[in-house]
Amino acid sequence: MNQPSKYAIETRGLNIFYGDFQAVKDISLQFERNRITAIIGPSGCGKSTVLRAFNRMNDFVPSAHATGEVLYHDQNINHPSVDAVQLRRLIGMVFQKPNPFPKSIYDNIAWGAKMNGFRGNTDDLVEETLRQAALWDEVKDNLKRSALALSGGQQQRLCIARALAVRPEIILMDEPCSALDPIATLKIEDLMRELSQNYTIIIVTHNMQQAARASDYTAFFTMDTDRSGIMVEYNETSLIFTKPKDQRTEDYITGRFG
């Protein structure tokens, strides 16, 4: 899984079904390396479903199945030979609600890394990842404190640090700021920008202002007449928010639809 590929991840004709219902239809998208790509669109347009397909989180939904390809290092990750656990190490995820383990700040990072076979100096790993997540200065004096005592924004940065500790290549973020106040949100966005130097970030957000502020590329999804999610437009964020090509994109970002 280590040969270089032009894109961090790529989908070709991706369809995802929940039982008989087609949740997303024919999604072909390329995600640039070391860039932040946002997926926006109204509720029910399948953006989270697509995000979860990138590290096979949909495996946990019994009725879900996919056709088409999700290419990572030129390999279709839906192929039976792909180890989903290993895949989720390389393609990490940060969720809507911060979900730290009910353990110390230190253990939140050390645990996952050790379970993934980390053999190095754990103290160094904890410091390095907390620094990368712009949390170190706020917590360094008491790493044994419970993670649950942190503020929401700090908890979310801890979850990002925890994701970084297993050395992923891609970080998926599913509405990572919807439970946070505006200042904590802006801090996460600045952090994303920092992290994009070393990681590829794909973020799903309801908040199109956040997509505008924080991302390099934006994909706009909407619901087709049969209620499946489709991708309408994909371009540089600066173009999507100033000169969208499709009227449906224009209507959505100007607040005239949805």
Binding site: Q209, A212, R213, T237, S238, F241, T242
Partner: peptide
């Protein structure tokens, strides 16, 4: 400037 206004609020 227009891009900044549109994207950075």
């Amino acid at each position: 400037i227009l891009i900044l206004m549109a994207t950075q609020q």
